[in-house]
Design a protein around this nucleic acid. Structure first.
Lengths: 236, 236
DNA sequence: TCTAAAATATGATTCATATCATATTTTAAA
DNA sequence: TTTAAAATATGATATGAATCATATTTTAGA
């Protein structure tokens, strides 16, 4: 890591002074991963903080029966493995996998905390970031506890369109490749159910395309479907 | 708040210097609540940090249809309304209700952040705390996504026994009053389902009693039921 | 360009849990 | 102590989604 200046592009390093970034740069390693690899596995010792530099990373937990949940899709600037904050060397409670080509910054926990102690403004930023993440996670729990499969999937598509899509005509084309199975794992339903619901969404012209080119056509309507207040559902 | 010394009993203030606690004490207000009241409601502006001093508080979200999920039960020392960290004056995404007699410390966000900036060690403590909370929330999402009603309830009872119970004979009596409805809301099932499953647990001598005196009799067995690896289930 | 693997599609069936209904017991409040 | 409200209990039925099965299409790799 010769040049520490790229660090200021990463949101959480915004408030770190230049001299500090210089100091830190010796401690940071950057690694590239491609699909199929693991950044870390469930059970690996949690020793590092990780930050997504480029690409998209997913956090996954697996049940003893082999079922998977994708807890969160992380984008550039996102901190992951936040649990490392607490569990010193304890096993990771989930694994992290790249969704395509990614670049990840890795920093030993101790160095990170020391930096934060020298840069309280940055520490407060991290606190805000984690507050936000906690909030998201709780919203996710709410959705899983209260909403049906169709609502969950509609909500997910809305989120994805807002967080990682490019406008294309009247629609939003997702910039991440997501199979129906990926979608299913993100909202706790089976692949078949995801396929069926996406089929209905397609028929109703709310979405189009598959993994390679998934495009959200009617965001407002999906938003309505996502909030169960309007008891409206799509014809089966 | 005459005497700031009680603050050192609260975990997150452990690392704050005495002089600092003195300074802060003017900013902190303590309020008592009883069951039926609201500490804050969903939609109220988020201006304060809150810390549980005595008693138990629950964080609840409500759907537009009136269904409820209890996201988290907070005990003394717990920070709540962590989302205030991020959303400055934005509406609270959930409400906080006392479960019995509670005492809550309230501190204006600005004062809290300023204190943290002066006390980086405390800031790092908060980061660890939030990392832990995030972790819990993600584990909860996993459970909701992957486990069935019986497993979820068994897991909840194990948690409760570990977090807030007193030994009583061979069992653990919960120190919080929890109706079957409360239990149901905590794991995203209906009250009827909770009653039925608790009925089975009772018959199998895993638990005994109702809200007033709920006692976990067979923790190991409940632990087994909670992890879906052992596909064992109770006879219906 | 061919080919195997992955992804999508769709039907039939089962199963768990929600929903609705009603009864009984317990609790707290007048 | 009485009484209304809350909590627990239990049955019948409906329903959404899982499961199992199989077919077709698409994708990526040799």
């Amino acid at each position: 890591m010769k040049n520490p200046d790229h660090l200021k592009e990463i949101p959480l390093f915004n408030l770190v002074k230049r001299s500090e970034r210089q100091r830190l740069s010796g401690e940071i390693t950057e690694t590239r991963y491609t699909k199929g690899e693991f950044i870390f596995r469930e059970g690996d010792p949690a020793e590092f903080f990780h930050i997504v530099k480029e690409g998209t990373v997913k956090c996954v937990k697996t049940s003893s029966e082999g079922k998977e949940v994708t807890l969160k899709v992380l984008m550039p600037g996102d901190l992951f493995c936040c649990e490392a904050a607490v569990f010193d060397g304890a096993p990771h409670p989930g694994c992290a996998q790249p969704m395509g080509e990614v670049s990840v910054l890795r920093l030993r926990k101790k160095a990170y905390f020391e930096m934060l102690k020298r840069n309280p403004d940055a520490a407060v930023e991290v606190i805000k970031y984690l507050g936000n993440r906690l909030n998201e996670a709780q919203e996710k729990a709410k959705v899983l506890a209260l909403n049906g499969a169709e609502q969950r999937l509609a909500g997910l598509l809305v989120n994805l369109a807002e967080r990682s899509s490019v406008r294309e005509g009247s629609g939003h084309r997702l910039t991440v490749r997501l199979t129906r199975q990926d979608l299913a794992n993100m909202v706790g339903i089976t692949t078949e159910t995801a396929i069926r619901i996406m089929g209905r969404f397609k028929k109703a012209r709310l979405v189009t395309g598959t993994a390679k080119q998934l495009t959200i056509l009617d965001l407002p309507r999906l938003q309505q479907l996502a909030s169960p207040s309007f008891l409206q559902s799509l014809p089966s």
